[in-house]
């Protein structure tokens, strides 16, 4: 397969992946927002901190 074709396929795959990752993420945040401000605040901040701790553990091994 030519280099040009590989790059076109990778571009499409990356754009599709971005949509597949970002859409559910923001759908979940919208659901939390609809449930109430306290849910989106608590949910997003606590999940962000948890994610930070997991990354710290994984990247300092």
């Amino acid at each position: 397969m030519s280099e040009f074709r590989i790059q076109v396929l990778l571009t499409i795959a990356t754009a599709a992946m971005a949509v597949l990752i970002l859409t559910p993420t923001f759908f979940a945040i919208k659901l939390l927002l609809d449930a109430g401000l306290e849910f989106v605040f608590g949910g997003v901040v606590s999940f962000g901190i948890l994610l930070g701790f997991i990354l710290r553990r994984e990247t300092t091994r």
Binding site: A13, L22, T25, F41, V44, G48, L51, G52
Partner: peptide
């Protein structure tokens, strides 16, 4: 509330996307 929430949303979405890119 969104003063605090929006940087966290940027952080979480970026982590997911960066991990997806690394895997792909």
């Amino acid at each position: 509330a969104f003063i605090v929430i929006s940087p966290f949303v940027g952080f979480i979405a970026a982590v997911f996307l960066a991990l997806g890119v690394m895997r792909l």
